[in-house]
Structure formats: C-alpha cells, structure tokens
C-alpha cells in the first residue's frame, strides 16, 4: 500500500503541500520541546540536559519499529522507501563540521529556523551564516568540493544489509542500544545537573 505517493495513492502534486504541513508540525514539535533554546541544545555536550538525545532517540525508535511492523502487515513497501545514498567521506567530514557548528552556535539547522521564527537574533545570524555557507559551497563546488563530495559512494545501502543481518535483529540490537543510551542520559544528567555551569 505505502509509501502513499510512490504508489500513486496520493498524487505527487501533493508533495510540497504535505512537506509544508509536516514541516509546520516539526517546527511546532521542536519549539514545544524547547529546542529553539541554544542552551538546551548545547546541554548534550556539557551533560546538563539530555532532552535532545532522548527526543531524537524516541523518534528514531518509534519510526523504526513502526516501519518494520507496517512492513510486516504489508502496509509499506520497504523497497520503495527512499534511502539517501551513502557517500562515506563527505558524511564523516560534513558531520564533523555540522557538529562543530552546533557546539559553536547552539543550533542545529532545523532548530535555528524555529528559533528564528520566535525572533531570536543569534538564530538570524545563524541562518544568515547557513545562506552564506550554501552560497560559498555552491559557487566553489567544482573547484574544491566535488572530489570530496563524490568520494566513497556506497550507494543506497541499508545498515542491516551492510552488516549482513536481518532488519529485525538490527532493530532489536538498536533498541537495546537506544534504551541503554536513554538510561545513560538520565544517569549523566543526575551527575552533572548539580554542578555550577557558567553559560
């Protein structure tokens, strides 16, 4: 049956509309969870607030489990789901830069927009920076980045295929890992939250 658009149950013209609605929902959720506060975001790195990890873990686990059950019930065709191709080197290096950016600014790209929309000035600077970065990247792509961008193409791989195990087993291991991390964050928070942090 699903994915609904790929299977033609919802026509592709709805794509931007659905993205718009989901985007509003996403922004609302980010704002509700307090992610537009850079102090909250940055809390992960200092260990005093782990809500970000917990929210994202919950989201990832929920969708992973949901998708597998949907697949079992025949509601979603796994092969039709879009998987971002893995370019291993650009993923690693780009990931490091994004991490650095998050530590420096206290925003991840999504949360910067939700912070922008409630009028935070540092978020405006951040979004401006994104725009500049995008412009610089696009303009110098062929000159500097193209080689890196295309290096180490693994194609549309799924992690359980790479590891050679079944999706069920992988999800099970991932759940154990996730739950472990979840409780670890509670432990870390207890440990650090009483300390005097200057921020």
């Amino acid at each position: 049956m699903g994915p609904l658009i790929t299977q033609g149950i919802i026509s592709p013209e709805w794509n931007p509309m659905i993205a718009f609605i989901v985007g509003i929902g996403f922004g609302f959720a980010l704002e509700q969870a307090g992610f537009s506060s850079s102090r909250k975001m940055i809390g992960i790195f200092y260990g005093y607030d782990m809500i970000v990890v917990r929210v994202f873990l919950t989201a990832v686990l929920t969708s992973a489990i949901g998708l597998l059950f949907f697949n079992y019930l025949g509601w979603v065709d796994y092969d039709l789901l879009y998987v971002n191709p893995t370019f291993i080197w650009s993923a690693i290096i780009g990931g490091l830069f994004v991490g650095l950016g998050i530590i420096m600014s206290g925003f991840c790209p999504g949360t910067s927009f939700s912070a922008l929309s409630i009028g935070k000035i540092d978020a405006m600077a951040f979004v401006g920076g994104i725009a500049l970065g995008v412009f610089f990247y696009a303009e110098t792509f062929e000159l500097i980045f193209e080689k890196l961008y295309k290096a180490g193409n693994w194609g549309n791989v799924r992690i359980y295929e790479t590891l050679g195990i079944s999706p069920g087993l992988f999800i099970f291991l991932f759940i154990i890992f996730g739950i472990g991390l979840f409780w670890f964050t509670i432990y870390v928070r207890k440990k650090f939250s009483n300390r005097d942090l200057k921020y």
């Binding site: 489990i65 597998l68 059950f69 697949n71 079992y72 025949g74 065709d77 796994y78 092969d79 039709l80 079944s166 999706p167 069920g168 087993l169 999800i171 099970f172 991932f174 759940i175 154990i176």
Partner: peptide, 15 residues
C-alpha cells in the same frame, strides 16, 4: 516490541 520484531518474518515486497 523489538523482541517481537526479532521473530516476525521480514516481508520482501517486490514492486
């Protein structure tokens, strides 16, 4: 739920 998924067969849908 994860334990359950461990035993459910993975449906390989061919479109």
């Amino acid at each position: 739920l994860g334990f359950l998924l461990l035993f459910l067969p993975f449906r390989k849908n061919v479109n």
